[in-house]
Design a protein around this nucleic acid. Structure first.
Ligand SMILES: NC(=O)c1ccc[n+]([C@@H]2O[C@H](COP(=O)([O-])OP(=O)(O)OC[C@H]3O[C@@H](n4cnc5c(N)ncnc54)[C@H](O)[C@@H]3O)[C@@H](O)[C@H]2O)c1
Ligand SMILES: NC(=O)c1ccc[n+]([C@@H]2O[C@H](COP(=O)([O-])OP(=O)(O)OC[C@H]3O[C@@H](n4cnc5c(N)ncnc54)[C@H](O)[C@@H]3O)[C@@H](O)[C@H]2O)c1
Lengths: 285, 285
DNA sequence: CAATCTTTGTGCACGCGTTCACAAAGACAT
DNA sequence: ATGTCTTTGTGAACGCGTGCACAAAGATTG
């Protein structure tokens, strides 16, 4: 979610609901596919099916942009593609900088779809001196020292953070100070930014945990849950509980892992690498 | 977004709001960090700040799990870690299979944080015969032919899709048929799955487009938008580029869908910048 | 031109999620 | 014990998002 909530009392025309904005790229993708197949028009029903949403919702979403449809016919594909693209700001080029060129950062740099929608990788930045100058995806990696200069010179306003969690806030601060006003964060950390700066996060770990929750519910629907529902493990005196939680789960290789490792994280005996495989952050990890 | 809405009229104890579930991992992360610093208790105010949410919201979230706090003191860190972990199903081990070991898939396989919270990479699968047997992150890549066998033998119920968009639905269908009931999809496609299967998607492109929208709003507040506000570009843009439409995966889903692709026509008449790096999927008319 | 048919645009109701605000519960001091 | 102080747990109000259902708009046909 984005931080920095701008008070906008629904000024009517300019007030496009956030939920709608989040769906526009979805519509755009479906429309683009139709466009490539030279489909001239599409009904809300068809397009909604392609985008995986309710048709009424789709029509309402489009109504925020204006009345671009024709009753009895549907929507003009090319025209809609144009309108949505314009609304999303994709008619212009957005230079993007990626900070932290490790496993993930490199994958992002190599990602074709990145540059395909008006987003252009303007620079790659990493703190590792050994990486400086080395090209990744045809773009030479630059050292963090030049971060401010790079941002300034290339006029970048969108930054992608793919550093370890421990460095994310610091990198974020520097990006913002240098003029970046939109950040896409892949590090498992809550970033704090001043008003006016948008932050969106992509968190693999959270997604998996949400899936696990539902998965558990599916399997355990008929199970004996009542049993440990109110089971209260030793609590009273402060630190006794620590023993309840299993000792370190990670650190060893995947294969050698000692099977069931309940709740990896809550282990005090911190190894060089944190529970996330990253350097432990000051706050969350 | 999860599919498969179970009608649950808030039966009390079992009905944890989806929004709350999505925040539990956030709390858990903050709590884990506190635990590592041996902090015994924490107030809702402090924890909320660490997790980047409102304290009232946090308290209400916890109230769905039960009354685990102590008035005047706060919450016992270790105890909460345990309760949340249990609720999320992290007290057990979740084997995960990754399909599509390319740039992204390899990065995911190498990701340390993956295995840290009870998630274990059980297998890596790719369609490229040249990759079979080659170890990535210490795990040998297996060929797609063995997908069903692998799923069955390892008892995997969570699958990660990191293939090109064109193959995503097909891979998804096979995973589901083999018994996978939770899918994390990185491909820019809308997956259709039967009831009972949860799908969550991570879409870099969408995130960037949402950021671009807000970015444009920030910059363009005083710009010349009135100009092309009602400008209606040629509504008959005839046939566009359609030569590269691949037959792509044939998937017999309930309400078929799938669509992705380069934005190409952000501006009518503009030449396509290049595909997503994926094979465009096609959908029925 | 009138009748019919298709599909949009939206008023309305409903449910979920967020936030406020406060009574009550418990810790701690005297 | 009694009083004070801190912090939880939650009732209630509010706002946003969703989906139904339908009148109106326009295409199409006779
Ligand atoms: N790899 C994945 O699939 C994956 C998935 C989800 C989240 N993440 C998160 O993304 C981040 C990166 O993951 P990764 O696997 O690429 O890690 P990595 O260790 O491979 O790469 C991190 C890179 O960041 C650089 N770096 C460190 N500190 C820096 C700083 N202050 N400024 C600039 N660069 C700095 C390092 O030199 C390194 O190249 C981590 O926070 C991780 O938790 C990764
Ligand atoms: N790389 C990124 O940073 C990034 C970011 C966001 C989204 N994505 C999406 O993730 C997906 C993968 O991206 P990538 O950069 O890793 O692509 P990639 O081309 O590097 O890797 C794709 C891999 O999938 C394999 N594959 C193809 N068809 C398959 C099938 N039917 N079954 C199993 N494996 C199959 C290929 O052999 C290849 O190894 C794409 O859909 C892409 O749009 C990638």
């Amino acid at each position: 979610m984005a931080t920095g909530r701008t008070h906008r009392p629904a000024t009517r025309s300019r007030g496009i609901p956030e939920a709608t904005v989040a769906r526009l790229p979805l519509y755009l993708r479906a429309l683009t596919a139709l466009s490539e197949r030279s489909v001239p028009t599409v009904s809300s029903e068809e397009l909604a099916a392609a985008a995986g949403v309710n048709s009424a919702k789709l029509r309402k979403d489009f109504s925020y942009l204006g009345s671009y449809g024709t009753r009895g016919v549907g929507y003009d594909v090319e025209y809609l593609v144009y309108q949505i693209s314009r609304e999303l700001g994709l008619t212009q080029d957005w230079p993007v900088v990626i900070v932290g060129i490790g496993n993930l950062g490199a994958a992002l740099a190599n990602y074709g779809g990145f540059a395909s929608r008006g987003f252009r990788v303007a620079a790659l930045i990493d703190a590792d001196p050994a990486m400086a100058g080395k090209p990744v995806a045809g773009i030479p990696v630059q050292h963090t020292d030049q971060l401010e200069t790079i941002i300034h010179d290339s006029g970048v306003s969108i930054g992608v953070i793919a550093t370890p969690a421990g460095a994310a806030q610091q990198v974020c601060d520097r990006l913002v100070a240098a003029g970046v006003t939109s950040i896409l964060n892949f590090a498992p950390t809550v970033l704090s930014v001043p008003d006016g700066v948008d932050v969106r996060k992509v968190d693999l770990s959270i997604e998996l945990q949400i899936l696990a929750f539902h998965e558990q519910r599916k399997n355990g629907e008929e199970r004996d849950e009542r049993a440990d529902r109110d089971e209260r493990p030793p609590r009273d005196t402060g630190q006794a509980v620590a023993a309840t939680v299993a000792p370190a789960a990670e650190a060893a290789g995947p294969g050698a892992n000692a099977a069931q490792g309940p709740v990896a994280g809550a282990v005090p005996g911190a190894s060089p690498k944190g529970p996330d495989g990253d350097v432990p952050a000051v706050m969350p990890a």
